[in-house]
Design a protein around this nucleic acid. Structure first.
Lengths: 189, 189
DNA sequence: GTCTATATCGTGATAGAC
DNA sequence: GTCTATCACGATATAGAC
C-alpha cells in the first residue's frame, strides 16, 4: 500500500470519528503510523486532506449504487429487492452513518463537498429509478421523477432517523414495514 | 432581556455558523457583548451551553409543528395544506438548515441531543399524521404509521437534498411536484 | 521523502479585583 | 455578578537534518 493510501486510511479513522474541526492532524499521523510532516508533504493542509478523503469515500460508495436495478425481474420483485438493498445500505452500515454525519455537518462550510455527494450519489440514484419507472409498462406516473424522490427520500430518511439520529428505540419500526408500505403505494395495493 | 438570554442568542449565532467544535467561546462572548467569564458563570462550560442552546431551539421549533392538522377540512385539502407547510418549514428556512447541520453533524458525539430532537419533533410529527390516517374514513392503510413515515421522510429529505446539501441547481425540482406526487400516491390517483 | 524538533497562535477555562 | 488578565494546553504548520 502506498503511503498516500496509508495516510488516507488514518485520516478516515480520525475524521469519521471526530468530524472536521475536532480532528487532529497529530492523530491522523499517529493512526497512519507516519510523521506529521509526511502527512503535510503529501497533502498540503488539513482542508486538502479532508477533501481528498471525502472524494475517495464518495467514489467507493458510488460503485455500489450503480446498476442495482434488474430489468429482467418482475417489477414487483425488482422494486422489493432494490428497496431492501437501499435499506441495508442506509441502516446496517455504521461507517456510512458517520459519513453522512460529517458530510451534512460540514455542508455549510464545505458546500462543494456536499455538491459532489449530490452529483455522484443522489442524482444517479434518483435518475436510475426514474428511468425504471419510465421504461416499465407497469407504471404510468405523470411525474416519475417526483415519485422516485419520494421513494429515495423515504428510505434515506428512515436510516437517518433510526440510526444516525439514534431514534431506533424511541420510534421503533422494522424496515420491512416501510418496504411493504412503499410497495402498496407504488402498486396501488 | 436577561443576560442568560443574551448569551444564548450570541451562542446561537456562533454555534449555528461554525458548528460545535469550531465555535469559540471568545466569539460567543463577543457576539453577546459580554465578558467570557460571564458566559462561564451562567453556563458551566462549552458543552453545557451547547446543550442549553439546542434545547431552546428544539422547544421553539416544536410549537410550530403541533396541531397543524385541520380535521374539519376535506382530507385532500388538509393533506395538501400540511405538505405545503412542511415543505416551507424544510425549504425556506436557512436557520433550520443550520440547525439540521449541527444536530446531525454532532449526533455521533452528542447522541442525547439527537434523541431529544427525535422525541420532540420527529415522533410527534409522525404520530399526529398517523392518527389522522387512522381516524379519517377516506384512508384504509394496513400500516398507517409506515405511510406516515414515507410522507414525512419524502418531505424532509427533499429539503435536505435541495437546500442543506445545496442540490437545488444540480437536481432542480419544484416542491409542488413532490406534493402533487404525494397526493397521487396517497389518494390512489 | 521522511523524520525530529520547534514556532506560533487560538483555545477552554479560571483567579482575583471591584 | 461582572470584569480584566492570564494560564496551560493542543492545534496547524514548518525548518532543517538525514
Amino acid at each position: 500500500m502506498s503511503k498516500a493510501e496509508t495516510i488516507l486510511q488514518g485520516a478516515m479513522q480520525e475524521f469519521l470519528a471526530k468530524g472536521y474541526s475536532a480532528a487532529s492532524m497529530d492523530r491522523v499521523a499517529a493512526a497512519a503510523v507516519v510523521s506529521k510532516a509526511t502527512v503535510y508533504s503529501h497533502f498540503g493542509d488539513k482542508e486538502t486532506l479532508f477533501k481528498a478523503l471525502v472524494a475517495q469515500m464518495a467514489q467507493q460508495r458510488m460503485r455500489s449504487i450503480l446498476s442495482r436495478l434488474d430489468y429482467s425481474l418482475d417489477p414487483r420483485l425488482a422494486m422489493r429487492q432494490l428497496f431492501m438493498e437501499g435499506m441495508d445500505d442506509c441502516c446496517k452500515n455504521p461507517e456510512f452513518h458517520d459519513f453522512q454525519r460529517i458530510l451534512i455537518g460540514e455542508s455549510g462550510r464545505f458546500p462543494d463537498l456536499a455538491k459532489t455527494f449530490v452529483i455522484h450519489m443522489s442524482k444517479p440514484g434518483i435518475e436510475s429509478l426514474t428511468r425504471y419507472f419510465e421504461r416499465s409498462s407497469v407504471f404510468n406516473f405523470p411525474d416519475p421523477e417526483a415519485i422516485s424522490r419520494i421513494v429515495v427520500g423515504a428510505i434515506v430518511h428512515f436510516g437517518m432517523t433510526q440510526y444516525v439520529m439514534h431514534g431506533k428505540e424511541i420510534i421503533p419500526m422494522e424496515s420491512d414495514r416501510l418496504v411493504d408500505a412503499l410497495e402498496l403505494l407504488l402498486f396501488n395495493n
